[in-house]
């Protein structure tokens, strides 16, 4: 445990990171091109690592510091690197991502989601300490917003990154509430890389066989049409 003033400062800085983190979730809904999506995702992951670092320092927990390190490595370096290697062409394409719902409309939905997230989490926040107060509702909100972002994107790369953003949200809550089980987060953090690798290869195969990664256009499988 770190002493009085420094601890307060760490808590405050964590709150600052929390604010920026939820901000990044909204920004993640806005870009129209895969590249912009990746940029925002890297920023968000960086904030997650920063929060893990602050909390690790605050609780004197080596596991959380390791989580910070792994998040930093996996999500801001390895995953973007993997994506760039496997999906170079798709990532650089200037094509606008097709959206099921327009950006303003989906952002308004995001407000509702955020409010709901806070309402759901509110009963859990009685005397649980300032960092949980910040991280749990924000992490939960970002998780739900991520699910929604995923649902309205119809392109492979943004969908993939949205999945990872959901992951970010869950972990943002996780590092505050389950700091003792950081070993899980380590394993899951590493698994994120595997997941992205698998999904990226799949996306590349799709690009090779179908010609584009606009997965929203793949609608051959549904009821009522003979296949």
């Amino acid at each position: 445990m770190t002493g009085g003033f420094a601890a307060n400062l760490l808590v405050d800085l964590d709150a600052l990171v929390g604010g920026l983190f939820i901000l990044s979730a909204f920004f993640l809904m806005a870009p129209r091109q895969a590249q912009g999506f990746l940029k925002h995702f890297v920023r968000q992951s960086f904030l997650l690592a920063l929060s893990a670092l602050l909390l690790g320092w605050l609780h004197g927990s080596v596991e959380l510091l390791l989580v910070a390190l792994i998040t930093l490595l996996a999500k801001t370096l390895i995953i973007p690197g993997l994506l760039t290697r496997t999906l170079e062409r798709e990532l650089r394409s200037r094509r606008e991502v097709e959206l099921a719902v327009s950006v303003p409309a989906s952002l308004l939905v995001a407000i509702v989601i955020t409010v709901l997230a806070f309402v759901f989490v509110a009963p859990l926040l009685h005397g649980v300490g300032p960092t949980v107060d910040i991280n749990l509702p924000i992490g939960f909100a970002v998780t739900l917003i991520g699910v929604y972002t995923l649902a309205v994107r119809r392109e492979a790369v943004p969908q993939m990154l949205a999945v990872m953003a959901i992951d970010n949200g869950a972990f943002f809550a996780g590092i505050a509430i389950a700091s003792s089980s950081a070993i899980v987060e380590l394993a899951a953090g590493l698994e994120g890389v595997v997941v992205v690798l698998v999904v990226a290869i799949l996306a590349r195969t799709i690009a090779q066989h179908v010609g584009s990664t606009a997965v929203g256009d793949l609608t051959s499988l549904k009821e009522g049409t003979p296949s």
Partner: peptide
Amino acid sequence: SAARFFSPTHVL
């Protein structure tokens, strides 16, 4: 207080 200054509300 610093807590207010750094609060997510303020940032947003």
